[in-house]
Amino acid sequence: MVAKQRCFYCNNPATLLCDFRLGLPFGERLRDSKGREYDVTTIDKPLHTCDMPLCRDHAEYRGWLHIKAGRNSHFDSYDYCPEHVGMVDTGAPVMQDSEAERLRRVVVANAQRRLMRERGVRRSPPPPPEQGKLF
């Protein structure tokens, strides 16, 4: 029996994944006529997204997308996790799979720290003293 995935922010079943675009999949490096190299994306791989597991209560709804795939056409929603609320994901860079995975780990670490602060488990260190208070 496979365990159901749980929302990162609570214990409810996760029915959504964060759709914030971290980057575009790396295809290859090409060189233009002036000799400058640039990264080229590929359509063979899906976009790199955050993929934080979410319940409906913790997801920011951004809209619907119609996926036309012949007889398998369907609608899907765009939802963002609390770490990406209000952010814009246009202009995402081209990146390797390993870089996208590293960014996902950073988002999870930031979310864990924020949740710990909100729950009072870990307090932030006091701000450093002002210059006049040092002496």
Rank of each mutant, 00 (worst) to 15 (best):
P46H: 05
D57P: 06
R104Q: 02
G91T: 04
P82H: 03
M116E: 15
R21I: 14
D97N: 12
A109F: 07
R31I: 15
G35V: 08
V106Y: 05
V107C: 07
G120A: 06
D32T: 07
V2F: 07
T41V: 09
V121D: 14
V121A: 13
L115F: 05
R56P: 03
G70V: 00
H74I: 02
T15S: 14
E83T: 05
G91M: 00
Y80F: 15
D44W: 13
K4I: 14
R117I: 11
R21K: 13
P128W: 03
C55R: 05
A100H: 00
I43M: 13
G23N: 01
M87V: 06
P129A: 00
K133M: 02
Y61V: 05
E37K: 13
K45A: 12
V85G: 09
H58P: 01
C50Q: 00
S33Y: 09
E60G: 04
D39E: 15
A109T: 10
L30I: 12
F26Q: 01
R104G: 02
N72F: 06
R117Y: 11
P125M: 03
N72W: 04
R36Q: 13
P126F: 00
E37R: 11
A3N: 15
R114N: 10
N72Y: 11
L24I: 08
T42I: 08
E60Q: 10
F135L: 08
I43Q: 14
R56D: 09
G132I: 09
R29F: 15
R105W: 05
F8D: 01
C18F: 04
L103K: 01
D57L: 14
E83N: 07
R62E: 03
D97T: 13
T42P: 01
W64F: 08
L17R: 11
P53E: 07
T41E: 14
H84N: 01
G23E: 01
L103P: 01
Y78S: 06
D89G: 02
K68S: 11
T41K: 13
V108Q: 08
L65Y: 03
T42G: 09
D57E: 15
R29K: 15
F135V: 12
P128N: 00
T42H: 10
G120T: 00
Y61L: 05
R104E: 00
V121M: 15
S73W: 03
R119I: 05
